[in-house]
């Protein structure tokens, strides 16, 4: 019965209508970013890493992300047509992870040019760190596209931590994202991020100050 459909049901239907376009957008974004970063990839030293991952937001994750953007995390049942998953900025998302920091800066310079017309939305620094945790851009490849894509550039260790955190905690239970707004959880999580940054910096310094087969290119 049409009248009894919930807002979530309507959004799930919308998701599967959008899905082919979300997949195409993810593929297009990944391909464009990989092409732009090819020169950097080919010049990497053996110990340097450049990882590019892409993901299509899953249905329940998308519906819950839109709900969390509403006041008090609740739908207004009287206004079902106010909601569309196309309001989400990250239905298709690419993450570029780089090590060491110099490669991260190289990636940032290239991607910033490619995405100059997109909106920059950096993840702000946490206490004790001077630079944003990650650079984020969102935008659309064409005016008629319904899908907004996100490109995120982050250090290898923090990016890897976010992937583990997502797979272990949020993927099975998208509503647990709300827990992360609580300061009692933010504090220990920030300690992990600071430790990863310190570890990355120390590791980088140790490599720069030493020599060995793992630091020389095979070229």
């Amino acid at each position: 019965m049409l009248g009894s459909r919930t807002i979530e049901d309507r959004l799930r239907e919308e998701y599967f209508d959008l899905l082919p376009e979300i997949r195409r957008t993810a593929l297009e974004t990944e391909t464009r970013v990989r092409r732009d970063l090819l020169d950097i990839s080919l010049k990497l030293e053996r110990y340097e890493r450049l990882l590019i991952t892409s993901r299509v937001k899953e249905c329940e994750s998308a519906v819950d992300a839109l709900r969390r953007r509403q006041l008090l995390g609740a739908w207004d049942e009287e206004r079902p047509h106010d909601y569309s998953l196309t309001q989400l900025p990250d239905l298709a998302a690419i993450r570029v992870m780089a090590f060491p920091r110099q490669r991260l800066l190289d990636v940032e310079a290239v991607v910033r040019q490619t995405l100059s017309s997109w909106t920059a939305d950096p993840v702000p620094p946490i206490d004790g760190l001077a630079v944003p945790l990650a650079l984020k851009y969102f935008g659309r490849w064409s005016l008629d596209s319904r899908i907004t894509a996100e490109v995120q550039i982050v250090s290898l260790l923090i990016g890897a931590f976010w992937e583990v955190e997502h797979d272990a905690i949020y993927k099975p239970n998208p509503n647990l994202h709300g827990v992360m707004r609580s300061a009692s959880v933010i504090q220990p999580r920030d300690e992990v991020l600071r430790a990863l940054e310190r570890f990355g910096a120390a590791f980088e310094e140790a490599i720069a100050g030493s020599e060995g087969s793992s630091t020389t290119s095979s070229g």
């Binding site: 995390g73 609740a74 709300g178 707004r181 009692s184």
Partner: peptide, 23 residues
């Protein structure tokens, strides 16, 4: 959220509901 705000709410016995993201 800044870490210095939560103690005010906790001391006043507010509960955080993570579904509704409200104390």
């Amino acid at each position: 959220m800044e870490t210095d705000k939560e103690p005010i709410l906790k001391a006043a016995r507010y509960v955080y509901n993570f579904d509704r993201m409200a104390y």
